[in-house]
Structure formats: C-alpha cells, structure tokens
Amino acid sequence: MPLIRSAGNGAGQVVDDPWTLVGDDEPLPENGPVIVTLARWQQDRESLIASGRPLGVRLASDQLAGTIAGDLPHLSLIALEFPSFRDGRAYSTARQLRDRYGFRGELRAVGNVLRDQLLFMHRCGFDAFEVPGADAAAAFARALGEFSVFYQPASDQRLPATRLRPLRSAAE
C-alpha cells in the first residue's frame, strides 16, 4: 500500500515506509521503528521504551485519544484506523491528539482511506496516509486542491473565511 506523506502546499509524496507494524503475537524485529497495537503498548510499554527505537501505536476507531495521552512523549507516530470510510471517529481522535494533547509526531490514516476524504483528514491533523492506487500522489494533490475556501478552523494551518474576511477588508 503506497504511503503518502504530506509535503506542505497541498502536495504529497509517495515515500518508503520505514515502519513495521507488529502483530500482538509476533516478535519484534531486531531494530527499526515499530508500530504496535494499544493492547501491546499497554502490556510491553516499559520494554518498548527501553529499546530506544522510534515507537508508534495504532488505535482502533473505538480507542480514544485519552488512553495514550500520557504516553505521547514516547511516541513518534500514531496510526488511526478507518475500519470503514463511514466510521468518522478518527477525525475527532486526530483533532484531540493534535489540539488537546499537543501531539506533534506523525499522524497516519490507515484502513479504508478514500481519496474523497483526504482533505478532511488533512484538515484534522493527519499528515501521512495509506492510500491505494498507483496514482496516489496525484490523487492526493488533486483532493487537497479541490477547495481554497474553508469555513471553520481545524487542526491545520488553513485560515478560515471568518479570519480572512477582516484581512481582506483591511487591505481594501
């Protein structure tokens, strides 16, 4: 599955994924960054931290941001699952991780990630996306370029119309 990383300015790059997703019953690889489930994180927390490698946790859509809020200093990546594109919980989880708990590492969208939802995800603070298809980078750029006007602040840098209007009036 191609991994797209947001490169700013609405572009995305297909990048090699250095992370290994480790199942709950699998041994950890010798070295390198690993992503584990919340259950494994809670069970092996101390040894994982002691290993000194970059660490990531994958949250199912019903696992709330608060469950790992205290562990964020140890985590370089959090992957949030979209079990179905209809399940929008991860949008709120992403926003809480970014805005409420100040997570600055990689926030990765995994699962049923549709191109028509990439802009929403990006606005909610995701910066990496597992997207199917050979044209994933082009689809990403296109999805992020579909709108230039936004009506609400979110967990991105885009200024909503409510903030831009006074600037425009001042410039006139």
Binding site: G88, Y91, L119, Y151, A154
Partner: peptide, 13 residues
C-alpha cells in the same frame, strides 16, 4: 451554516 459546511471532523458522524 457556514461553520458546518464541509466540516472536516463532522462529515462522517
């Protein structure tokens, strides 16, 4: 109306 228009967080409730 404006705030809720294509709200990125609340379009898949």
């Amino acid at each position: 109306r404006q705030w809720s228009s294509l709200h990125p967080e609340f379009s898949f409730l």
